[in-house]
Structures are given as C-alpha cells and as structure tokens.
C-alpha cells in the first residue's frame, strides 16, 4: 500500500458520487496532476464510467493532466491587475518562455497560468511563482526572474 493513490482512495470508504471532486482534489494535491491511472482508479473506486470522471475533471481549471513543472508562474488577470498592465506581463512571459498559458515548457521547468483573481487588488499587478507572490510586478523583472528560476533548477 505504498502507492499514494491507493492510500488516498482508502480514505474514501464511502463511494457515493459526491465524493468525486474531493477525491480528485486530494489526488491532484498529492501527485501534482491527474494521471490516466488515477482517473481509471477513481472511476473503479466510485463505480463511475471513466468518461464521466474525465468529463468532470476537464471541466475545472484546477486540474492538470500532465506532471507539474518545477515553477508554476501564475499571472493574475483580475480587473485591477488588467488595469495595471497584466496583459503586457503575460505577453512578455509568453515571448520569453515560448509557451501559452496552460502549457509547460518542453524541459518541464516552467508552466504558465492565467488566474482570474488572486485577491490582492490593492497590490496589483501580481505574479505568483510557486505560490510566492510578487506584488507590483513589472515587465522589466521578467528576465531576472526567469534566470533565477533556471539557476535554481540547475
């Protein structure tokens, strides 16, 4: 029972359908993404068709279906951040990393995400790297940030 997936499933002895989302969320938190194996196991556990599990999982922004990148860069695109130029920051990140939001760089180092609102509108624009917020972010900081992350991985 070393498999973390089985361990999580064991915590859900109740197999009613309304456990589906909490279960997927726990697995996602633990693995960082939803593997095909995990979708299949969840559907067996809850006796739900796998198409339904996959259908539910793909409906929500929270779930990813590929292994997580080292650095997840989330750019707030809330109204306040938009007014402070978050679109420009996003464009620059796209150019620098050569990926679109929702994608991971081929080396698995960076993933770019657009988030609706991080809830600190007084401090916009906000860029979050692995959960750490950079407030009042500007386009000029991008190159350094990316470099620092790369060094960290190396």
């Amino acid at each position: 029972m070393d498999n973390p997936l089985d361990r999580i499933l064991k915590q859900y002895p109740n197999t009613r359908r309304d456990n589906l989302l909490p279960l997927l969320q726990d697995i996602h938190d633990s693995l960082g993404y939803l593997s095909e194996e995990s979708i299949i196991k969840v559907s067996q556990h809850l006796s739900l068709p796998s198409s339904k599990v996959y259908g539910v999982a793909t409906f929500f922004d929270q779930f990813h279906f590929e292994p997580q990148a080292h650095f997840v860069i989330r750019i707030c695109s809330g109204t306040s951040c938009h007014l402070s130029g978050s679109a420009e920051i996003m464009d620059e990140f796209k150019k620098t990393l050569n990926i679109r939001p929702g994608q991971t760089t081929r080396d698995g180092v960076f993933r770019l995400e657009e988030v609706p609102c991080l809830g600190a509108c007084g401090l916009s624009p906000i860029v979050e790297v692995n959960g750490e917020s950079h407030t009042g972010f500007s386009v000029q900081q991008i190159a350094d940030l990316v470099e620092a992350c790369k060094e960290n991985v190396a």
Binding site: I39, Y54, G55
Partner: peptide
Amino acid sequence: CEETIGVSTVDFIGRGHSTIIGPTF
C-alpha cells in the same frame, strides 16, 4: 449512451466553446 444503453462511452470533455464530446481521455 448513459441512460438508454448504460455504457457511457462518451461524455463532454473540457468547458465552454472548446468542449467536445468524446470517450475518456
């Protein structure tokens, strides 16, 4: 597929205008 046949091969995948209907994965 779900209610008459009880197989549920296909379901909605994704959200919004990029939604498609297809089998798992």
